[in-house]
Write a protein that binds this DNA or RNA. Structure first.
Length: 462
RNA sequence: GGCGGGUUGGCGGAGAGGUUACGCAGCGGAUUGCAAAUCCGUGAAGACCGGUUCGAUUCCGGUACCCGCCUCCA
Protein backbone atom coordinates (compact mmCIF):
# COMPACT_ATOMS: atom_id res chain seq x y z
CA UNK A 1 0.00 0.00 0.00
CA UNK A 2 1.24 3.43 -0.95
CA UNK A 3 1.70 5.69 2.07
CA UNK A 4 0.20 9.05 1.20
CA UNK A 5 1.13 12.13 3.18
CA UNK A 6 -0.88 15.32 2.99
CA UNK A 7 -0.49 18.68 4.66
CA UNK A 8 -3.54 19.20 6.82
CA UNK A 9 -4.38 22.86 7.27
CA UNK A 10 -6.16 22.00 10.49
CA UNK A 11 -3.00 20.71 12.18
CA UNK A 12 -0.53 22.66 10.03
CA UNK A 13 1.44 19.46 9.57
CA UNK A 14 2.17 16.90 6.92
CA UNK A 15 0.39 13.77 8.10
CA UNK A 16 0.12 10.16 7.05
CA UNK A 17 -3.25 9.79 5.35
CA UNK A 18 -5.41 7.07 6.89
CA UNK A 19 -8.90 6.82 5.43
CA UNK A 20 -11.89 6.29 7.68
CA UNK A 21 -12.94 3.45 5.40
CA UNK A 22 -10.40 2.17 2.89
CA UNK A 23 -13.30 0.69 0.92
CA UNK A 24 -14.74 4.16 0.41
CA UNK A 25 -12.36 7.10 0.60
CA UNK A 26 -14.48 10.26 0.59
CA UNK A 27 -13.48 13.67 -0.65
CA UNK A 28 -15.28 16.97 -1.10
CA UNK A 29 -14.04 19.90 -3.17
CA UNK A 30 -15.73 23.29 -3.03
CA UNK A 31 -16.93 23.88 -6.56
CA UNK A 32 -17.76 26.99 -8.54
CA UNK A 33 -20.50 29.53 -8.21
CA UNK A 34 -22.05 29.19 -11.61
CA UNK A 35 -22.58 32.74 -12.72
CA UNK A 36 -19.85 33.00 -15.37
CA UNK A 37 -16.99 31.23 -17.11
CA UNK A 38 -14.39 29.65 -14.82
CA UNK A 39 -11.21 31.69 -14.62
CA UNK A 40 -7.79 30.12 -14.47
CA UNK A 41 -7.67 30.37 -10.69
CA UNK A 42 -10.80 28.22 -10.48
CA UNK A 43 -8.96 25.55 -12.43
CA UNK A 44 -6.03 25.13 -10.06
CA UNK A 45 -7.83 23.21 -7.28
CA UNK A 46 -9.76 21.21 -9.86
CA UNK A 47 -6.59 19.99 -11.56
CA UNK A 48 -4.72 19.46 -8.29
CA UNK A 49 -7.56 17.48 -6.73
CA UNK A 50 -7.97 15.56 -9.96
CA UNK A 51 -4.41 14.30 -9.48
CA UNK A 52 -5.18 13.47 -5.84
CA UNK A 53 -8.23 11.48 -6.90
CA UNK A 54 -6.16 9.58 -9.46
CA UNK A 55 -3.58 8.84 -6.76
CA UNK A 56 -6.23 7.71 -4.27
CA UNK A 57 -7.79 5.45 -6.90
CA UNK A 58 -4.34 4.05 -7.62
CA UNK A 59 -3.81 3.37 -3.92
CA UNK A 60 -7.29 2.22 -2.84
CA UNK A 61 -8.87 1.03 -6.07
CA UNK A 62 -10.89 2.74 -8.75
CA UNK A 63 -14.23 1.95 -7.14
CA UNK A 64 -13.19 2.84 -3.61
CA UNK A 65 -13.06 6.61 -3.85
CA UNK A 66 -16.04 8.98 -3.78
CA UNK A 67 -15.37 12.44 -5.13
CA UNK A 68 -17.96 15.19 -4.65
CA UNK A 69 -17.80 18.69 -6.07
CA UNK A 70 -20.74 21.04 -5.77
CA UNK A 71 -22.26 23.69 -7.98
CA UNK A 72 -23.33 26.80 -6.12
CA UNK A 73 -26.38 27.95 -8.03
CA UNK A 74 -27.87 30.21 -5.38
CA UNK A 75 -25.99 33.45 -5.40
CA UNK A 76 -26.58 37.16 -5.73
CA UNK A 77 -24.32 37.45 -8.78
CA UNK A 78 -26.45 34.87 -10.57
CA UNK A 79 -29.54 36.79 -9.54
CA UNK A 80 -28.03 40.03 -10.77
CA UNK A 81 -27.19 38.53 -14.16
CA UNK A 82 -30.66 37.10 -14.54
CA UNK A 83 -32.25 40.34 -13.46
CA UNK A 84 -30.14 42.27 -15.97
CA UNK A 85 -31.27 39.91 -18.72
CA UNK A 86 -34.88 40.31 -17.70
CA UNK A 87 -34.58 44.09 -17.72
CA UNK A 88 -32.98 43.86 -21.15
CA UNK A 89 -36.18 42.21 -22.33
CA UNK A 90 -35.30 38.52 -22.17
CA UNK A 91 -38.42 36.35 -22.14
CA UNK A 92 -39.35 34.15 -19.18
CA UNK A 93 -39.68 34.50 -15.44
CA UNK A 94 -36.77 35.41 -13.23
CA UNK A 95 -36.57 31.82 -12.00
CA UNK A 96 -36.43 30.59 -15.59
CA UNK A 97 -33.73 33.07 -16.46
CA UNK A 98 -31.72 32.00 -13.43
CA UNK A 99 -32.09 28.36 -14.33
CA UNK A 100 -31.07 29.18 -17.89
CA UNK A 101 -28.02 31.05 -16.71
CA UNK A 102 -26.83 28.34 -14.31
CA UNK A 103 -27.52 25.57 -16.81
CA UNK A 104 -25.50 27.40 -19.44
CA UNK A 105 -22.66 28.09 -17.01
CA UNK A 106 -22.48 24.48 -15.84
CA UNK A 107 -22.19 23.41 -19.48
CA UNK A 108 -19.27 25.82 -19.97
CA UNK A 109 -17.66 24.63 -16.78
CA UNK A 110 -17.85 21.01 -17.82
CA UNK A 111 -16.45 21.77 -21.25
CA UNK A 112 -13.57 23.84 -19.84
CA UNK A 113 -12.60 21.37 -17.10
CA UNK A 114 -12.89 18.47 -19.54
CA UNK A 115 -10.45 20.34 -21.77
CA UNK A 116 -7.98 20.33 -18.87
CA UNK A 117 -8.33 16.57 -18.53
CA UNK A 118 -10.08 16.75 -15.14
CA UNK A 119 -12.23 13.71 -14.47
CA UNK A 120 -15.85 14.40 -13.61
CA UNK A 121 -16.60 13.89 -9.92
CA UNK A 122 -18.85 11.05 -8.81
CA UNK A 123 -21.43 13.56 -7.60
CA UNK A 124 -21.97 17.17 -8.61
CA UNK A 125 -24.75 18.35 -6.35
CA UNK A 126 -26.49 21.65 -7.05
CA UNK A 127 -27.39 23.78 -4.07
CA UNK A 128 -30.93 24.30 -5.34
CA UNK A 129 -31.51 20.54 -5.16
CA UNK A 130 -30.71 20.50 -1.45
CA UNK A 131 -32.70 23.43 -0.06
CA UNK A 132 -34.87 21.09 2.04
CA UNK A 133 -31.81 19.49 3.60
CA UNK A 134 -30.37 22.91 4.38
CA UNK A 135 -33.60 23.98 6.08
CA UNK A 136 -33.53 20.80 8.17
CA UNK A 137 -29.96 21.44 9.18
CA UNK A 138 -30.75 25.01 10.14
CA UNK A 139 -33.66 23.82 12.26
CA UNK A 140 -31.35 21.37 14.01
CA UNK A 141 -28.92 24.19 14.74
CA UNK A 142 -31.69 26.35 16.19
CA UNK A 143 -32.89 23.50 18.40
CA UNK A 144 -29.38 22.94 19.66
CA UNK A 145 -28.98 26.60 20.58
CA UNK A 146 -26.41 27.22 17.84
CA UNK A 147 -28.57 29.51 15.73
CA UNK A 148 -31.35 32.04 16.11
CA UNK A 149 -34.00 33.60 13.90
CA UNK A 150 -34.39 37.39 13.67
CA UNK A 151 -36.43 39.42 11.20
CA UNK A 152 -36.62 36.65 8.60
CA UNK A 153 -32.92 35.91 8.94
CA UNK A 154 -31.36 32.96 10.70
CA UNK A 155 -27.89 33.47 12.11
CA UNK A 156 -25.29 31.09 13.39
CA UNK A 157 -24.29 31.86 16.97
CA UNK A 158 -20.51 31.84 16.73
CA UNK A 159 -20.06 31.96 20.52
CA UNK A 160 -21.84 28.60 20.78
CA UNK A 161 -18.98 26.75 19.12
CA UNK A 162 -15.87 26.77 21.26
CA UNK A 163 -13.56 25.73 18.43
CA UNK A 164 -14.64 28.54 16.11
CA UNK A 165 -11.48 29.92 14.45
CA UNK A 166 -9.41 26.80 15.01
CA UNK A 167 -8.95 26.03 11.32
CA UNK A 168 -7.74 29.48 10.41
CA UNK A 169 -5.90 30.12 13.66
CA UNK A 170 -7.83 33.11 14.87
CA UNK A 171 -10.04 33.87 17.78
CA UNK A 172 -13.40 35.55 17.65
CA UNK A 173 -12.06 38.33 19.82
CA UNK A 174 -9.09 38.96 17.54
CA UNK A 175 -11.34 39.15 14.55
CA UNK A 176 -13.65 41.62 16.17
CA UNK A 177 -10.61 43.66 17.11
CA UNK A 178 -9.82 43.73 13.40
CA UNK A 179 -13.13 45.55 13.08
CA UNK A 180 -13.78 44.56 9.52
CA UNK A 181 -16.97 42.68 10.11
CA UNK A 182 -20.42 43.62 9.02
CA UNK A 183 -22.41 44.95 11.90
CA UNK A 184 -26.10 44.29 11.47
CA UNK A 185 -28.75 45.20 14.00
CA UNK A 186 -30.15 41.67 14.07
CA UNK A 187 -26.83 40.05 15.02
CA UNK A 188 -26.16 39.05 18.61
CA UNK A 189 -22.46 39.13 17.88
CA UNK A 190 -20.72 40.84 14.97
CA UNK A 191 -19.11 37.55 13.90
CA UNK A 192 -22.41 35.68 13.62
CA UNK A 193 -23.06 34.70 10.04
CA UNK A 194 -26.14 34.15 7.94
CA UNK A 195 -27.70 30.71 7.51
CA UNK A 196 -30.89 31.96 5.90
CA UNK A 197 -31.93 35.32 4.54
CA UNK A 198 -35.24 36.69 3.30
CA UNK A 199 -35.89 37.16 -0.42
CA UNK A 200 -38.06 39.88 -1.86
CA UNK A 201 -40.09 39.34 -5.03
CA UNK A 202 -37.15 40.13 -7.31
CA UNK A 203 -35.08 37.30 -5.85
CA UNK A 204 -35.40 33.55 -5.93
CA UNK A 205 -36.78 32.16 -2.72
CA UNK A 206 -38.06 29.06 -1.04
CA UNK A 207 -40.65 28.69 1.69
CA UNK A 208 -39.22 28.05 5.11
CA UNK A 209 -40.26 28.28 8.75
CA UNK A 210 -38.76 31.79 8.68
CA UNK A 211 -40.64 32.95 5.61
CA UNK A 212 -39.73 33.00 1.93
CA UNK A 213 -35.98 33.23 1.59
CA UNK A 214 -32.75 31.67 0.44
CA UNK A 215 -29.79 30.01 2.15
CA UNK A 216 -26.56 31.73 3.10
CA UNK A 217 -23.48 30.68 1.24
CA UNK A 218 -21.86 28.30 3.72
CA UNK A 219 -24.73 26.00 4.65
CA UNK A 220 -24.94 24.30 1.26
CA UNK A 221 -21.55 22.59 1.58
CA UNK A 222 -22.40 21.37 5.07
CA UNK A 223 -25.75 19.98 3.95
CA UNK A 224 -24.57 18.42 0.72
CA UNK A 225 -21.41 16.84 2.13
CA UNK A 226 -23.53 15.35 4.92
CA UNK A 227 -26.04 13.90 2.47
CA UNK A 228 -23.45 12.47 0.09
CA UNK A 229 -20.47 11.65 2.32
CA UNK A 230 -21.87 11.37 5.83
CA UNK A 231 -21.10 13.15 9.07
CA UNK A 232 -17.40 12.21 8.90
CA UNK A 233 -15.37 12.05 5.73
CA UNK A 234 -11.73 12.09 4.75
CA UNK A 235 -10.72 15.15 2.79
CA UNK A 236 -12.17 18.59 2.22
CA UNK A 237 -10.35 20.77 -0.28
CA UNK A 238 -10.45 24.22 -1.79
CA UNK A 239 -8.50 27.41 -2.32
CA UNK A 240 -6.74 28.94 0.67
CA UNK A 241 -8.99 31.98 0.39
CA UNK A 242 -11.86 29.74 1.47
CA UNK A 243 -10.13 28.85 4.72
CA UNK A 244 -11.84 31.79 6.32
CA UNK A 245 -14.68 32.36 6.56
CA UNK A 246 -16.18 29.69 4.33
CA UNK A 247 -14.53 26.57 5.71
CA UNK A 248 -14.49 27.84 9.26
CA UNK A 249 -18.23 28.36 9.01
CA UNK A 250 -18.79 24.98 7.41
CA UNK A 251 -16.99 23.34 10.32
CA UNK A 252 -19.04 25.28 12.86
CA UNK A 253 -22.33 24.35 11.19
CA UNK A 254 -21.50 20.72 10.58
CA UNK A 255 -19.95 20.00 13.94
CA UNK A 256 -22.81 21.67 15.81
CA UNK A 257 -25.49 19.95 13.72
CA UNK A 258 -23.77 16.56 13.88
CA UNK A 259 -21.83 16.56 17.15
CA UNK A 260 -20.92 12.90 16.85
CA UNK A 261 -19.17 13.36 13.51
CA UNK A 262 -15.75 14.79 12.72
CA UNK A 263 -16.90 16.49 9.53
CA UNK A 264 -13.69 16.56 7.46
CA UNK A 265 -10.54 14.95 8.83
CA UNK A 266 -8.02 16.48 6.44
CA UNK A 267 -8.25 20.01 5.06
CA UNK A 268 -6.29 20.68 1.90
CA UNK A 269 -5.86 24.22 0.67
CA UNK A 270 -4.11 25.31 -2.47
CA UNK A 271 -2.38 28.67 -2.65
CA UNK A 272 -3.54 31.35 -5.01
CA UNK A 273 -2.78 31.62 -8.66
CA UNK A 274 -1.22 34.92 -9.58
CA UNK A 275 -0.89 36.89 -12.75
CA UNK A 276 1.92 39.39 -12.96
CA UNK A 277 2.68 38.74 -9.32
CA UNK A 278 -0.77 39.65 -8.04
CA UNK A 279 -3.68 37.52 -7.07
CA UNK A 280 -6.06 36.92 -9.90
CA UNK A 281 -9.33 38.35 -8.70
CA UNK A 282 -12.52 39.79 -9.94
CA UNK A 283 -12.13 42.97 -7.96
CA UNK A 284 -8.67 43.65 -9.42
CA UNK A 285 -10.01 42.91 -12.88
CA UNK A 286 -6.86 40.99 -13.89
CA UNK A 287 -8.48 37.63 -14.35
CA UNK A 288 -8.92 35.65 -17.49
CA UNK A 289 -10.86 32.51 -18.11
CA UNK A 290 -9.77 29.02 -19.06
CA UNK A 291 -11.74 29.51 -22.25
CA UNK A 292 -9.73 32.65 -23.08
CA UNK A 293 -6.55 30.57 -23.02
CA UNK A 294 -8.07 27.72 -25.01
CA UNK A 295 -9.26 30.24 -27.58
CA UNK A 296 -5.68 31.50 -27.88
CA UNK A 297 -4.81 27.97 -29.05
CA UNK A 298 -3.10 27.09 -25.78
CA UNK A 299 -3.95 23.38 -25.46
CA UNK A 300 -5.72 22.24 -22.31
CA UNK A 301 -2.90 19.79 -21.73
CA UNK A 302 -0.42 22.66 -21.67
CA UNK A 303 -2.52 24.56 -19.13
CA UNK A 304 -2.72 21.41 -17.02
CA UNK A 305 1.06 20.92 -17.17
CA UNK A 306 1.72 24.50 -16.09
CA UNK A 307 -0.76 24.22 -13.21
CA UNK A 308 0.96 21.04 -12.01
CA UNK A 309 4.49 22.37 -12.37
CA UNK A 310 4.24 24.34 -9.11
CA UNK A 311 3.45 22.67 -5.79
CA UNK A 312 -0.15 23.32 -4.83
CA UNK A 313 0.76 24.96 -1.52
CA UNK A 314 2.78 27.70 -3.17
CA UNK A 315 1.56 30.69 -5.07
CA UNK A 316 1.84 30.16 -8.80
CA UNK A 317 2.42 32.85 -11.36
CA UNK A 318 0.89 32.18 -14.76
CA UNK A 319 3.15 33.36 -17.57
CA UNK A 320 3.17 32.90 -21.32
CA UNK A 321 6.76 31.69 -21.04
CA UNK A 322 5.70 28.76 -18.86
CA UNK A 323 3.04 27.81 -21.37
CA UNK A 324 5.61 27.92 -24.15
CA UNK A 325 8.04 25.68 -22.26
CA UNK A 326 5.29 23.26 -21.30
CA UNK A 327 4.17 22.95 -24.89
CA UNK A 328 7.72 22.13 -26.03
CA UNK A 329 8.09 19.45 -23.34
CA UNK A 330 4.74 17.88 -24.12
CA UNK A 331 5.45 17.89 -27.83
CA UNK A 332 8.73 16.07 -27.25
CA UNK A 333 7.18 13.59 -24.84
CA UNK A 334 4.27 12.87 -27.13
CA UNK A 335 6.76 12.13 -29.89
CA UNK A 336 8.57 9.74 -27.59
CA UNK A 337 5.46 7.79 -26.57
CA UNK A 338 3.66 7.75 -29.93
CA UNK A 339 2.36 4.27 -30.64
CA UNK A 340 3.71 2.92 -27.35
CA UNK A 341 1.71 1.16 -24.63
CA UNK A 342 2.16 2.38 -21.07
CA UNK A 343 4.17 0.36 -18.57
CA UNK A 344 1.97 -1.87 -16.39
CA UNK A 345 2.42 0.44 -13.40
CA UNK A 346 3.68 3.98 -12.89
CA UNK A 347 7.32 4.38 -11.91
CA UNK A 348 7.91 4.33 -8.13
CA UNK A 349 9.59 7.74 -8.30
CA UNK A 350 6.42 9.28 -9.74
CA UNK A 351 4.19 7.66 -7.14
CA UNK A 352 6.59 8.57 -4.34
CA UNK A 353 6.57 12.22 -5.37
CA UNK A 354 2.78 12.37 -5.55
CA UNK A 355 2.37 10.48 -2.30
CA UNK A 356 4.57 13.09 -0.62
CA UNK A 357 1.95 15.80 -0.26
CA UNK A 358 1.08 15.76 -3.95
CA UNK A 359 4.47 16.93 -5.16
CA UNK A 360 3.45 17.28 -8.76
CA UNK A 361 6.56 19.29 -9.63
CA UNK A 362 8.71 16.47 -8.28
CA UNK A 363 6.67 13.96 -10.25
CA UNK A 364 7.26 15.96 -13.42
CA UNK A 365 11.01 15.92 -12.66
CA UNK A 366 10.77 12.12 -12.40
CA UNK A 367 9.06 12.10 -15.79
CA UNK A 368 11.93 14.12 -17.25
CA UNK A 369 14.32 11.46 -16.02
CA UNK A 370 12.26 8.68 -17.58
CA UNK A 371 12.13 10.62 -20.83
CA UNK A 372 15.88 11.20 -20.66
CA UNK A 373 16.45 7.48 -20.38
CA UNK A 374 14.21 6.95 -23.39
CA UNK A 375 11.79 4.91 -21.30
CA UNK A 376 8.63 5.54 -23.33
CA UNK A 377 6.36 3.06 -21.54
CA UNK A 378 7.51 4.34 -18.13
CA UNK A 379 7.04 7.95 -19.17
CA UNK A 380 3.56 7.24 -20.48
CA UNK A 381 2.42 5.36 -17.38
CA UNK A 382 3.85 8.03 -15.07
CA UNK A 383 2.43 10.93 -17.05
CA UNK A 384 -1.02 9.36 -17.12
CA UNK A 385 -0.91 9.20 -13.34
CA UNK A 386 -0.83 12.99 -13.58
CA UNK A 387 -3.52 13.02 -16.25
CA UNK A 388 -0.98 13.98 -18.91
CA UNK A 389 -0.25 12.30 -22.26
CA UNK A 390 -3.73 10.82 -22.23
CA UNK A 391 -5.55 10.10 -25.47
CA UNK A 392 -8.28 12.62 -24.62
CA UNK A 393 -5.81 15.50 -24.31
CA UNK A 394 -3.74 14.59 -27.35
CA UNK A 395 -5.76 16.16 -30.16
CA UNK A 396 -3.70 19.34 -30.30
CA UNK A 397 -0.60 17.47 -31.38
CA UNK A 398 -2.16 16.09 -34.56
CA UNK A 399 -5.03 18.43 -35.23
CA UNK A 400 -3.01 20.95 -37.21
CA UNK A 401 -3.70 21.82 -40.82
CA UNK A 402 -2.60 19.38 -43.50
CA UNK A 403 0.81 20.55 -44.67
CA UNK A 404 1.80 17.32 -46.38
CA UNK A 405 1.72 18.83 -49.88
CA UNK A 406 4.16 21.52 -48.83
CA UNK A 407 6.32 18.96 -47.07
CA UNK A 408 6.49 16.89 -50.23
CA UNK A 409 7.36 19.95 -52.30
CA UNK A 410 10.11 20.80 -49.84
CA UNK A 411 11.45 17.25 -49.96
CA UNK A 412 11.59 17.32 -53.76
CA UNK A 413 13.30 20.72 -53.88
CA UNK A 414 15.79 19.55 -51.31
CA UNK A 415 16.65 16.44 -53.31
CA UNK A 416 17.31 18.60 -56.36
CA UNK A 417 19.36 21.04 -54.34
CA UNK A 418 21.51 18.33 -52.93
CA UNK A 419 22.45 17.39 -56.47
CA UNK A 420 22.86 20.93 -57.81
CA UNK A 421 24.34 22.41 -54.60
CA UNK A 422 22.04 25.38 -55.12
CA UNK A 423 19.86 25.61 -52.01
CA UNK A 424 18.30 29.00 -52.70
CA UNK A 425 14.88 27.61 -53.66
CA UNK A 426 14.78 25.42 -50.56
CA UNK A 427 15.74 28.33 -48.33
CA UNK A 428 13.14 30.60 -49.93
CA UNK A 429 10.39 28.06 -49.27
CA UNK A 430 11.65 27.55 -45.75
CA UNK A 431 11.60 31.30 -45.07
CA UNK A 432 8.05 31.66 -46.32
CA UNK A 433 6.92 28.74 -44.15
CA UNK A 434 8.60 30.28 -41.12
CA UNK A 435 6.87 33.56 -41.92
CA UNK A 436 3.55 31.69 -41.79
CA UNK A 437 4.41 30.42 -38.33
CA UNK A 438 5.44 26.92 -39.36
CA UNK A 439 8.38 25.21 -37.71
CA UNK A 440 10.54 23.56 -40.38
CA UNK A 441 12.53 20.48 -39.44
CA UNK A 442 14.80 18.92 -42.02
CA UNK A 443 16.76 15.86 -41.17
CA UNK A 444 18.29 12.86 -42.84
CA UNK A 445 14.92 11.15 -42.63
CA UNK A 446 12.98 13.86 -44.42
CA UNK A 447 11.08 17.07 -43.86
CA UNK A 448 8.69 17.73 -41.00
CA UNK A 449 6.41 20.77 -40.84
CA UNK A 450 4.84 21.76 -37.54
CA UNK A 451 2.41 24.65 -37.22
CA UNK A 452 3.55 26.76 -34.27
CA UNK A 453 1.65 29.14 -32.00
CA UNK A 454 1.86 31.96 -34.59
CA UNK A 455 0.59 29.82 -37.44
CA UNK A 456 -1.39 31.73 -40.02
CA UNK A 457 -2.78 29.70 -42.91
CA UNK A 458 -3.30 32.88 -44.96
CA UNK A 459 0.47 33.41 -45.15
CA UNK A 460 1.24 29.94 -46.42
CA UNK A 461 3.04 29.84 -49.79
CA UNK A 462 0.78 28.76 -52.64
C1' G B 1 -4.63 46.32 13.55
C1' G B 2 -5.21 40.57 13.85
C1' C B 3 -3.84 35.93 11.35
C1' G B 4 -1.20 32.99 7.67
C1' G B 5 2.40 31.99 3.63
C1' G B 6 6.80 33.09 0.90
C1' U B 7 12.12 34.78 -0.27
C1' U B 8 16.65 28.88 -3.93
C1' G B 9 21.48 29.57 -9.74
C1' G B 10 19.96 34.19 -15.84
C1' C B 11 14.56 32.32 -15.53
C1' G B 12 11.11 28.56 -13.67
C1' G B 13 11.03 25.12 -9.68
C1' A B 14 11.78 20.53 -5.96
C1' G B 15 13.82 17.44 -2.22
C1' A B 16 17.24 16.56 1.57
C1' G B 17 21.16 18.52 8.22
C1' G B 18 26.74 16.29 5.10
C1' U B 19 26.63 13.40 -1.44
C1' U B 20 24.00 15.93 -9.30
C1' A B 21 17.31 17.91 -8.17
C1' C B 22 14.90 18.65 -12.59
C1' G B 23 13.39 21.89 -16.79
C1' C B 24 14.34 26.26 -19.89
C1' A B 25 18.06 29.53 -21.42
C1' G B 26 23.74 29.87 -21.82
C1' C B 27 28.37 27.58 -23.11
C1' G B 28 31.35 23.28 -25.56
C1' G B 29 30.79 19.05 -28.78
C1' A B 30 28.15 15.41 -32.23
C1' U B 31 24.76 15.62 -36.20
C1' U B 32 22.95 19.02 -40.31
C1' G B 33 23.81 21.85 -47.32
C1' C B 34 22.66 26.03 -43.46
C1' A B 35 19.37 26.02 -39.50
C1' A B 36 15.86 23.71 -36.36
C1' A B 37 15.02 19.40 -33.70
C1' U B 38 17.74 15.56 -31.32
C1' C B 39 21.92 13.47 -28.51
C1' C B 40 26.45 14.01 -25.22
C1' G B 41 29.04 17.19 -21.84
C1' U B 42 29.24 21.68 -18.72
C1' G B 43 29.43 26.46 -15.44
C1' A B 44 25.89 28.67 -12.10
C1' A B 45 22.00 29.01 -6.04
C1' G B 46 19.32 29.26 -1.68
C1' A B 47 17.19 37.56 1.10
C1' C B 48 20.00 39.47 5.52
C1' C B 49 21.85 38.87 10.79
C1' G B 50 22.52 35.64 14.77
C1' G B 51 22.01 30.65 17.29
C1' U B 52 22.23 25.07 17.60
C1' U B 53 25.76 21.51 15.20
C1' C B 54 31.85 18.48 13.65
C1' G B 55 28.82 20.42 9.54
C1' A B 56 22.75 24.37 7.60
C1' U B 57 20.44 26.56 1.81
C1' U B 58 17.82 22.65 5.00
C1' C B 59 16.45 23.21 12.29
C1' C B 60 15.63 27.70 15.88
C1' G B 61 15.31 33.18 16.75
C1' G B 62 15.35 38.06 14.74
C1' U B 63 15.42 41.77 10.52
C1' A B 64 14.01 43.28 5.61
C1' C B 65 11.03 42.76 1.50
C1' C B 66 6.87 40.35 -1.09
C1' C B 67 2.08 37.97 -1.09
C1' G B 68 -2.59 36.35 0.85
C1' C B 69 -6.91 36.13 4.37
C1' C B 70 -9.92 39.09 7.82
C1' U B 71 -15.14 41.87 2.15
C1' C B 72 -17.59 38.48 -3.47
C1' C B 73 -13.50 35.21 -4.71
C1' A B 74 -10.35 28.84 -5.82
Amino acid sequence: MVEIRLTNTRTRRKELFRPIDAQNVRLYLCGPTVYDRAHLGNARPVVVIDVLVRLLRHAYGTDHVTYVRNFTDVDDKINATALARKEAGAPGTLEELIRERTHETIGWYHADMDALGALRPDHEPRATDYIGEMVLMIETLIKGGHAYARDGHVLFRVRSFADYGQLSGRSVDDMIAGARVEVAPFKEDPMDFVLWKPSDDDLPGWDSPWGRGRPGWHIECSAMSYELLGESFDIHAGGIDLQFPHHENEIAQSCCAHPHGDFARVWLHNEMLQVEGRKMSKSLGNFFTVRDLLDQSIPGEVIRFVLLSTHYRKPMDWTAEKAREAEAVLRRWRGLVAGIDPAPSPAPAVIAALADDLNTAGAIAALHELAGRGDGPGLLAGAQMLGLLTDELGDWITSGPDLSDLAERMTALRAEAKASKDFSAVDALKQSLIAAGVEVRMGPLGVELLPGPDFDAAKLPQ
